[in-house]
Structure formats: structure tokens, C-alpha cells
Write a protein that binds this DNA or RNA. Structure first.
Length: 231
DNA sequence: AACCAGGACGTGA
DNA sequence: TCACGTCATGGT
């Protein structure tokens, strides 16, 4: 695999050409009434890289980042909607909410016992930061925030140039022979950050495009890589 | 009816 | 450090 740098850049352009701007991170329509009939909220905002803008939107991204751990986004939407209905997409309100009530709201997103605790932990942290951008190490110190969640929060909530690696990233680029199958999180993250210009919209789109592509072709074996092999 | 989902934590080698 | 079990609901 010679010249991983140009390869990773060209794969990005190929994905962008295939799927277009993804508009991550999705935000609930805070003025809206209800989830759509399909159960899927819209919330995506292609080519708008200034979101989130408000403290509440930033907090919503953070809640979603924790709720979506090993969980489909459609399930996360249900939990987020519950939290919005209860008026706790706000750190102070969330902390004042009865734990059992919080668990019921989180339930549709799975792992509701631990995720409820995680949401309380990140709420305290969010209040403590008081609007300041946290360092990566600081967020990693919060219980429930691992490598991917930390980078997701920094990249999508705080517009920091931290590349997000997930299981899909390892699956696709492992299968393409760019990385070893058992590469560590930081190895993969460092590779992408060394190969790509340090650009927030690029990082945001690349990760979202990887997820979109993986959902289509990397859920079930045998994986079909021809969509990226020729570009 | 397995298997997977935009992982993280606790434990024991 | 690292492999492994655990956490849980919901869709295919």
C-alpha cells in the first residue's frame, strides 16, 4: 500500500462524489412538534458547518454522542425526543431529574442503566467547563467517554480538528488493506490525521461518509469493496 | 433466530 | 497493555 496519504484523500473524494455532504451532526428541530411518522427525525444540515451554535445545541450533540454508543441512531432519536419532551436537554435540568425517570427516557437507546449515569456525568462536566472548550484528556476523564465519544464531541460539538474513528472505519480500511485489522484506535486516528489536512469540515464529512458507506456495504459479510477500489 | 447497531468499562492475565 | 465478558433495546 504505497502512498496512503493520496489514497485516503482520493477515497474521501470518491465517497463525497457518491453520497454528497452528510450534514452531520444531526440536531433535533427544537421548534418542531413530533418525530416524523417514519420514526426518523430529520435534523441533518448539509453544507452548514457552523452548527451547533447555541449552548443547548452543543449539549444535544454531546447527549447524542453518548446515547449512540453501539446503538442505531434511530433508537437514539427516540431517547433524545423523550429527553426533549421532559425539558432536560439542558445540563442543570437533567441533573435535577429523578434517576428512574431519566432511565425510562433513555431506555429505547439501550444500555439505559449505564447511559443514564453517563449522561449525568457529562452534564456535571459540561457545567464545570462553563462554555470553555475541553481538552481531549479532560473529556476522556469523564466516565462513559472513551476515545470515539471524546473525538465525536470535540469534532461535532466543539469544531475541534479531531478525527473520529469507529468500528466502520476499521472495517472498511482494514478490508481495503490500508490498516491492520487489529490496529488500535489511536493508530488509525493518527494515520488519518497525518494524511489529511487539519480541517474540521473535512473531518466531519469524512467520518459521516464512512458511516454512510459502511451502512450500505459493510454491515454483512462478504464485504463488497469494489465501490471504492476503482476511482 | 441470530446478528448487528455511529462503544465503554471492569476484570484478570 | 490487551483480550474478554457485560451492558439492553430495536431492527433485519
Amino acid at each position: 500500500m504505497p502512498d496512503k496519504e493520496s489514497y485516503l484523500i482520493q477515497v474521501y473524494h470518491k465517497l463525497y462524489q457518491l453520497y454528497g455532504p452528510q450534514g452531520w451532526w444531526p440536531l433535533m428541530d427544537l421548534e418542531g412538534e413530533n418525530p416524523t411518522k417514519t420514526g426518523s427525525l430529520k435534523g441533518y444540515h448539509p453544507l452548514n458547518y457552523s452548527l451547533p451554535e447555541t449552548s443547548q445545541q452543543r449539549f444535544e450533540v454531546i447527549l447524542g454522542a453518548i446515547l449512540t454508543q453501539n446503538t442505531a441512531w434511530t433508537s437514539v432519536e427516540k431517547a433524545l425526543w423523550n429527553l426533549k419532551r421532559m425539558g432536560v436537554v439542558h445540563p442543570q435540568n437533567l441533573l435535577e431529574l429523578e434517576t428512574e425517570i431519566l432511565k425510562e427516557a433513555v431506555r429505547p437507546a439501550g444500555f439505559f442503566n449505564q447511559k443514564s449515569v453517563y449522561l449525568q456525568e457529562i452534564s456535571r462536566f459540561f457545567l464545570k467547563m462553563d462554555g470553555k472548550v475541553p481538552a481531549r484528556k479532560e473529556i476522556l476523564g469523564v466516565k462513559g467517554v472513551g476515545n470515539e465519544t471524546a473525538d465525536s464531541i470535540l469534532l461535532y460539538a466543539y469544531h475541534q480538528p479531531q478525527f473520529v474513528v469507529d468500528a466502520y472505519t476499521k472495517r472498511i480500511f482494514g478490508h481495503l488493506g490500508v490498516i491492520k485489522e487489529n490496529s488500535s484506535y489511536m493508530e488509525v486516528k493518527n494515520l488519518f490525521e497525518e494524511c489529511l489536512p487539519r480541517n474540521v469540515p473535512l473531518y466531519q464529512e469524512y467520518h459521516a461518509l464512512i458511516v454512510e458507506h459502511a451502512k450500505r456495504y459493510y454491515q454483512k459479510r462478504p464485504y463488497n469493496e469494489i465501490h471504492l477500489k476503482r476511482y
